Computed example of a mutant assay.
Amino acid sequence: MTPPGDRLQLIDSLRGYALMGLFLVHCVELFELHWAHPQPSLAFDTVFALFAGKAFALFALCFGLSFSLIFERARARGEAPEARFAWRLFLLLLIGIAHSLVYRGDILQLLAPLGLMLLAFDRIRSNRLLIVIAALSFLQPPLIARAMAAAAGAEWANAPPLFMAESGTAMLTDGGFADVLRVNLLAGRISAWSYYVETGRLLQIVGLFLVGLVLGRIRFFSEPDRFVHPRRWIGGAAGVIMVGLWASRPWLLAAVDPSAPAAVVANVGWLLSGWIALCSLALQIVLFVEIFQALHGRILGHLAPAGRMTLSLYVGQSLVFVPVFYGFGLDLHDDLSGREALLLGLVSFAVQLVLARWWFGRFQFGPLEWLWRAATRRSLDIPFVRPATA
């Protein structure tokens, strides 16, 4: 049974797990420079199988969960949180835009504007209706419609995705810092948004927001002992469906008419990959909660400090490692093997865990978290330094 004081620790630990997975993906991906000279690697394949698309999705789910917790606490204080939350998202968007100039793979510029939809969905009090809307989002009607249009020969549906075109990658590998900022300002942003839209990530995020909102409302993570049997049933079903989809994926893709345009196969592939990732995410969440509960947070709880300062660490990771891999810095993108990049990521994240634990022994918020909170409340009277204790 989870002690009351550990309830938030489970959520923070889960958020720290998402941060770890996303960081390891970025490391083996060389902060996107892997695609400039892709090399086969067992380390790359393993990390992508475990975390690619899943860690990102877990961040989106936690975003909806955090929304639910913020609104629950604000309403308990008798406040109307809508205007402040919208302002909070605007500030997050500014942080994301600034971050995307350095690293085009930034997800904050995507989560922030989409987060405004939660203000509308929060007015829907039926959790069942929210789950139905989430399920429809996961079905990805746009991908299905585009595959059908491509099969019918529609020119727009068969056009190559924008993110597949050259979008200034050479500037990232060989250009200076000013070149990186310039190419990420427009070409990088178009490429990133094209990827989110055309592969179905955008609609998937909406569905994950809603799932997170519902899980927060029913206190799925705050009172985990109430959901032991439903949680295990969901985990088992997700595992079976994931294995079934993964095993049948080659057959399903091969079943597509061989004379069909390549865009049909691409859209079907993105559709199946999205469903597999969602099932994998559900299974990983269930396993994480089960292990956390069984060990009373003794091991996985070490991820909690990182989960409390995800914004600072997420942005800080790019500020440190983009210069490590990119041409204007140490230029290691073509010197490290996949295994070496993974090892670098594991060691670096361990250092981040130690740093986060040390930080919260002295401060109450991460540096960016404090600035974000202070700007949201438009006040500097937010306690930052942890008061001394006897």
Rank of each mutant, 00 (worst) to 15 (best):
F121R: 15
D122A: 12
N127K: 12
R128E: 08
R128Q: 05
R128A: 02
L129M: 03
I131H: 07
I133Q: 13
A134E: 02
A134Y: 00
A135Q: 06
S137G: 14
Q140K: 13
L143Q: 12
L143W: 08
A151P: 07
A154H: 14
W156A: 15
A159R: 08
E166N: 04
E166G: 04
S167R: 09
S167K: 13
G168P: 01
M171A: 14
L172E: 05
L172A: 09
D174A: 14
G176A: 08
D179R: 15
V180G: 03
V180K: 00
R182C: 05
R182L: 10
G188D: 08
R189H: 01
I190D: 00
A192Q: 14
A192C: 11
V197F: 06
T199K: 13
L202E: 00
L202M: 00
L203E: 10
I218M: 11
I218L: 12
R219G: 06
F221S: 00
S222N: 11
E223H: 05
V228E: 14
I234E: 01
G235T: 09
G244D: 04
W246Y: 14
A247K: 13
A247W: 10
D257F: 01
P258T: 11
P258G: 15
S259M: 13
A260W: 07
A263N: 09
